[in-house]
Design a protein around this nucleic acid. Structure first.
Lengths: 278, 278
DNA sequence: TTCGGTCAAAGTTCAGG
DNA sequence: CCTGAACTTTGACCGAA
C-alpha cells in the first residue's frame, strides 16, 4: 500500500500518469473518448459542482470532464485514432466509426504512386492469367493451381515483368520500391527469350514441394522434368549448357523475400482476390 | 532548423540513419519490431495507399511498413533479438511475452533439446569451416566471404546436413523443428554425391548478387560459371542433363526463409560469432 | 554512429453495466 | 449506447561497440 497513488480526478487508485496527470484507467479512458469525440456535456444538476469521486464519477460526465481539465489533463496528448486491429471487420463495421482519419485521405504524392500500383497490378493480373494458361499447369485441379500461385505469384511476376515487351522501367522506378527495382534489374540480365521464359515459368509453376497430395507430387515432378528437358534441348541447340545452368540459377533470385519488398507486401493480400476472378 | 532532417518514412524529425535510411526513432523501432516478429499486416483501407505522416503513421501499420521498405529500409540489417540487458531478470520476466530468444533455457524438454541444439551447432561449424575451405571461395577477401556466409549459411547447412555421412536424422527429429525436418528431407532426395555436393556448394557460395563491389560481381560470376561447367561435365558423364537440371532446381529449396524455421532463428545470432572464430 | 533494450504512456478490445 | 480492466504498441531515451 506504500506506493498507492490517488487519481487526481476521482481519488480512485491511480494506474500511472495519463495525459500529464496521475489518474485511474477509467478517468484516462473517459478523457480520451471525450476529447476524440469532441463531446460537449451539460451538467446534470446544472450547477457544475457535482462531486467527482470513485462512486459518483459516472453520475455527471460534464463535471467529470471539467475536473479532468481542472487537474491539468492535456487534451493535446490524445492521439489520432488508429486503425482497427481486427482487420477483417474493418469494412463492415458500423457506419462512420472508421472513416479514414483525416479529411485529406490521399494527400501529397500518393496519386502517382497509386497509379503505378494500379498499372503494376494490371501486369500482375496478366501474369497470373498467362500462368493459368500454361500448358502443363492448366491440367491441374484448380485448388492445386491456387495453392501454387499463392506462393509463387511473385516469382512469376518478377520473371515476366523483367522481360515485359513494353518498357515499364518508368513504372518500376516510379513505384519507389528499391528492392523490387533491383530484383527486376537482376532478372532482366538473364535476357531470356520467349521460349526460355515459358520453360522457366513451367519450372516455377510445377514445384513438387508445393503439391497438395502425394499424387500431385508425382505429377508435378514429371511436369517439372519435362520442362527441364525442353529447356535443355532448346538452350543446348541455341548455345550451350552454361546458358542452361545460368537460367536455372536465375530462378533462385526471383523469389521476393518476405520482407524485402514493399510491392510484395502490397500485393500479397490482393493476390487471393485476383485468383478468385480468374 | 539548420540541421533538421526529415524521416524518410513519415516526415517527422529524423534521429539519424537506421537500417540504411534516415528516419525517426518511431519508424526505426516499428520496422525493427515488424521484422523481428515477422508481422504480416493487411492494409486497413485495403487500397494500400494510406497516408503515412507524423500524425497518421499509426493509422495503418501495413502502409507504414510498406513505406519503410519502399524508401529502402533493409530488413537484413535487423539483428537477432538479444537477451534482456539485465541478465538476472531474464528468467523471471513476465510470462509469455516471447519465445525464449535463444540461449535462455528452453522450458519444455530442455535437456534433450539443448543437446540437439549443441550437436547441430557443431555440424554448422563444420559446414562453415568446409565452406571456407572451398577452393574458389577461399580466394575471396575475408570481408566478402563473411558477407556471403551471413546470408547463405543456412543453405550450406541444409545441403550438407541432408547429406551427412553419419545418420543424424534422430538429431533433426529431436530438435522438434518441423520446417527444418521437411527441408532436409526434401534436400536429401537429391541424393547428391560428394563431387556434386562440392559443386553445389560453390554455386551457393559464389552468388554474384551478394558481391560487395562491382569487381567482386565479376569474380563471383566467373567462379559461378566455372562451377556450373564443372557440374555439367560431371553430371553429363555420369547421367544426363536432366540430372544437371534437377540438381540446380534443388538449390531453390535449400533456402530457409527468415522466419519459417526455428533453427534458423536460433542459429542466426550464433553465426556471426562462429564466423569470427574461423 | 547506429545497433540494441527498456518501460511509461499512448493505443485498442470487449464483457458487463 | 458508455465504462474500465486487460492487453498491445509506440517511441523517447540510454548503453554498447
Amino acid at each position: 500500500m506504500s506506493n498507492f497513488s490517488a487519481c487526481a480526478v476521482c481519488g480512485d487508485q491511480s494506474s500511472g500518469k495519463h495525459y500529464g496527470v496521475s489518474c485511474c484507467d477509467g478517468c484516462s479512458c473517459f478523457f480520451k473518448r471525450s476529447v476524440r469525440r469532441g463531446s460537449s456535456y451539460a451538467c446534470i444538476a446544472l450547477a457544475g459542482n457535482c462531486v467527482v469521486d470513485k462512486a459518483r464519477r459516472n453520475w455527471c460526465p460534464s463535471c467529470r470532464f471539467q475536473r479532468c481539465l481542472a487537474v491539468g489533463m492535456n487534451a493535446a496528448a490524445v492521439q489520432e485514432e488508429r486503425g482497427p486491429r481486427n482487420q477483417q471487420v474493418a469494412l463492415y463495421r458500423s457506419g462512420r466509426r472508421h472513416a479514414p482519419p483525416s479529411q485529406a485521405p490521399p494527400s501529397p504524392t500518393p496519386h502517382s504512386q497509386a497509379l503505378h500500383f494500379q498499372i503494376l497490378a494490371q501486369i500482375l493480373v496478366t501474369c497470373l492469367r498467362q500462368a493459368k494458361a500454361n500448358e502443363q499447369f492448366a491440367l491441374l485441379d484448380r485448388c492445386q493451381q491456387d495453392a501454387i500461385l499463392q506462393v509463387v505469384w511473385s516469382e512469376i511476376f518478377v520473371l515476366r515483368a523483367s522481360h515485359w515487351s513494353l518498357d515499364i522501367s518508368a513504372m518500376i522506378d516510379g513505384c519507389g520500391d528499391e528492392q523490387l527495382k533491383r530484383l527486376i534489374c537482376e532478372a532482366h540480365q538473364l535476357r531470356a527469350d520467349v521460349l526460355e521464359l515459358n520453360f522457366l515459368e513451367s519450372l516455377i509453376l510445377c514445384r513438387k514441394e508445393l503439391a497438395i497430395s502425394a499424387e500431385y507430387a508425382v505429377i508435378l515432378g514429371s511436369h517439372s522434368n519435362a520442362a527441364l528437358i525442353s529447356l535443355a534441348r532448346y538452350t543446348l541447340q541455341q548455345s550451350n549448357y552454361l546458358r542452361f545452368g545460368q537460367l536455372l540459377l536465375g530462378l533462385r533470385q526471383l523469389c521476393l523475400r518476405r520482407f524485402d519488398c514493399a510491392l510484395s507486401c502490397m500485393f500479397r493480400s490482393v493476390v487471393r482476390d485476383i485468383l478468385k476472378t480468374l
